[in-house]
Design a protein around this nucleic acid. Structure first.
Lengths: 215, 215
DNA sequence: GGATGTGAAGTCGTTCACAGCT
DNA sequence: AGCTGTGAACGACTTCACATCC
């Protein structure tokens, strides 16, 4: 298979399709039409069909889509049928939250390492919250640990001012995916997949919309 | 002023321009060209100029943009020059993290209330972490408190299965902006500004890109 | 000279509308 | 009859290229 040019927006929507298909499945539904799935995901029905069409034909004309079947197919497309090994770098408030927030992760993501400049202090603080000992490593060990533990994706949750230093460290490892939670724009060599996820930008967007509401 | 049709992507970028302008200002820079700002934000220079052109003329030909001036202008456009009063609904791991993560908020966002179905238990758990007493309210009181404390924006950090119930409660209040951190698609009446911000969708996107990397 | 502001061109994504299956 | 799959129309956003102004 070779999916030449799939819009990024399509990929984002596929994630939400999976979530809603799982809800439908849990409710005992068996088939769903593009129109229904579209409604619950807040998109256009043609959009659903187009998104799926990038990857094959999963429906039955006159009927719809078998829910379990479609969910499995999308998971395979997205790579959610395999385990992804994740590291968290920077265990402040956000990093610690991600570290503890097991529910946040579907079972295909697994946190296999956590790094911070003050391993001992941070480990103490976190394990106080959990009651269990927690392993926090110094970023010096990133390269070695990334290899040993086969880390696929790093999540950067340091202060913005440290983000580029972390990115430089990551560039020297076998890690190839990065999710950057800081507002800093990080530079990485070709071949790395980097996504930014800075939540106040979205908050600013809400503020803007409220700001210019007529009334 | 009336900004008929500004792309949402433009608004998102304006947030990042502000961040980078503030970094430049802190470094003692005075003027910046669209080309330089664009580079540090990872976008095209024409894009920067187009984005700004939606709102006016802020630059000087042959020179560039005065950094402080431009930052102030963008903040005014986005509504970041006024205080926005925020509530967090659902104080689990993520909600608690947002509640405590003061640095996450620029000074124009202020958390003025936190809600959870188990106020007493949750308040105990959170204040254990901070050492200070923390007020957690039952969602029953949302309408009353929203009015008294003039809440502008609600952040939903409950489990996905509760999100619609929360949305229904919000619909009855004076709150008009919502940031939904759950994967559920919430339905709200006209006149509400809702943005979804579900982080595993972005993680899935990274996984997808890694999945289909040739090699 | 040099960088902005902007029409025009280009690219990308969404929606329509209907042919084609079941 | 109903719903998918898809070419074609449409619309939106981005990039180019250059006239304009400091």
């Amino acid at each position: 298979m070779k999916f030449s040019k799939v819009p990024e927006a399509t990929i984002r929507r596929l994630s939400t399709y999976v979530h809603h298909l799982e809800v439908l499945e849990k409710n005992g539904e068996v088939v769903v039409s593009s129109a229904n799935l579209a409604r619950s995901c807040g998109v256009n029905a043609a959009q659903v069909r187009k998104d799926l069409a990038y990857f094959g034909e999963f429906g039955i004309r006159g009927v719809g889509y078998y829910i379990k079947d479609l969910a499995d197919n999308i998971k395979t497309i997205l790579g959610l049928n395999r385990e992804w090994r994740v590291a968290i770098i920077g265990i402040g408030n956000l990093g610690a939250s991600l570290l503890l927030y097991k529910e946040f992760f579907k079972n295909n993501y697994k946190i296999v390492a956590a790094f911070d400049l003050n391993p001992a202090e941070v480990a103490g603080r976190v394990s106080e919250r959990t009651g269990k000992p927690v392993e926090i490593l110094h970023p010096d060990r990133l390269k070695e640990v990334a290899k040993d533990r086969r880390i696929d994706i790093a999540m950067i949750t340091t202060p913005a001012s440290e983000a580029q230093k972390v990115a430089d460290l990551i560039a020297q490892t076998t890690i190839r995916g990065v999710l950057n939670f800081t507002p800093a724009q990080i530079q990485m060599p070709k071949g790395f997949e980097v996504k930014n996820y800075f939540f106040t930008a979205v908050l600013d967007n809400v503020a803007y919309l409220l700001r210019w509401k007529r009334r």
